[in-house]
């Protein structure tokens, strides 16, 4: 009701302007994605047609190859079954979950300690972390490559998990540190007087209040691991590839027809979990990003 009265008051010109802006913005932001989803159900001569881009919409070649149907699941079949994309999905799941869990465990403990310590070196640790964060990822990887070969730990998942955690940790530390700073010290102190040890106070009182911050930081860690290309493409053998380097390998070998369509189908498959994730944690993320003062 209040919205109705609001839009009544607004001048027509402004309403049109706002609507037009939103429409343009949605098209700009969402169109590439919808285009990809649509195209993933076509064959390559349609989606990458040289004759007319209308082919990508109507699927002329797709109909010809498919007994009249304008849609085909062949891209998905090729990616998931023929080229075993599910392996990459499994690897990605292992890598992202491990990176997120390890980063969050170290990050909450470390961030809490740094936020409450009050010692001078806490500040320098944070600055040092920032320096490491600022370095391009690839410097870490190229530095590690040779020792990893020699130690014979190149190509396996745990190695890239460790490297990704190392890259991600400064960020989680900073982020969680500032979340902890926004929680009044009185809370820990009340809890300790009430009978908690320092760690119990952390677990029973601080973390429940911190939850949105933990979820937000966890999501960022998750996305870092999920989207990483630099580390995983250099440090994983072909058998152990995660999704992103796997998709890139679909693109790389262009001898076979349909390979590009495998990549397109895989890209779409890789995006779906992200949507679900964001929808699921929406509330915590928003309150995590806007969290500031915690009312005591």
């Amino acid at each position: 009701m209040s919205q109705a009265t609001l839009s009544h008051k607004r001048p027509l010109g402004l309403t049109i302007l706002i609507t037009a802006f939103i429409v343009v913005w949605v098209i700009l932001a969402a169109f590439p994605f919808f285009w990809t989803v649509w195209g993933s159900f076509k064959v390559e001569p349609d989606f990458f047609s040289r004759e007319s881009w209308w082919n990508a919409i109507f699927g002329v070649y797709t109909q010809r190859q498919n007994d009249g149907s304008a849609f085909t699941g062949s891209g998905y079949y090729g990616a998931w079954v023929t080229r075993e994309f599910w392996r990459a999905v499994g690897n990605t799941a292992i890598v992202t979950v491990s990176v997120t869990v390890i980063s969050l465990t170290l990050g909450t403990l470390g961030g809490y300690a740094l936020a409450r310590s009050g010692q001078r070196y806490a500040f320098w640790i944070l600055i040092l972390a920032l320096v490491f964060r600022a370095m391009p990822h690839i410097t870490l990887v190229s530095g590690y490559l040779l020792p990893f070969f020699q130690l014979n730990i190149w190509g396996v998942l745990p190695t890239s998990i460790i490297v990704l955690v190392a890259i991600n940790q400064p960020f989680t530390l900073w982020m969680l540190h500032s979340f902890f700073l926004s929680i009044p010290k009185d809370l820990d102190e009340s809890a300790m007087v009430d009978g908690c040890s320092r760690f119990e106070a952390f677990r029973r009182v601080i973390i429940p209040v911190m939850w949105p911050g933990v979820v937000t930081t966890g999501l960022f860690s998750f996305l870092l691991a999920y989207n990483d290309f630099a580390v995983t493409s250099m440090l994983l053998s072909a058998d152990n590839q995660t999704m992103v380097p796997k998709i890139s390998s679909f693109l790389g070998s262009v001898q076979e027809q349909g390979n590009v369509m495998f990549a397109v189908a895989a890209v779409v498959s890789a995006t779906v979990p992200l949507f679900i994730l964001v929808l699921f944690f929406q509330r915590q993320i928003v309150s995590g990003l806007t969290a500031g003062a915690v009312k005591g």
């Binding site: 009340s190 007087v193 009312k295 005591g296």
Partner: peptide, 14 residues
């Protein structure tokens, strides 16, 4: 084994 009332309350918000 003491209990304390804080100047700024220190209640658990959750």
């Amino acid at each position: 084994d003491i209990s304390m009332v804080f100047q700024s309350y220190g209640l658990y918000p959750n």
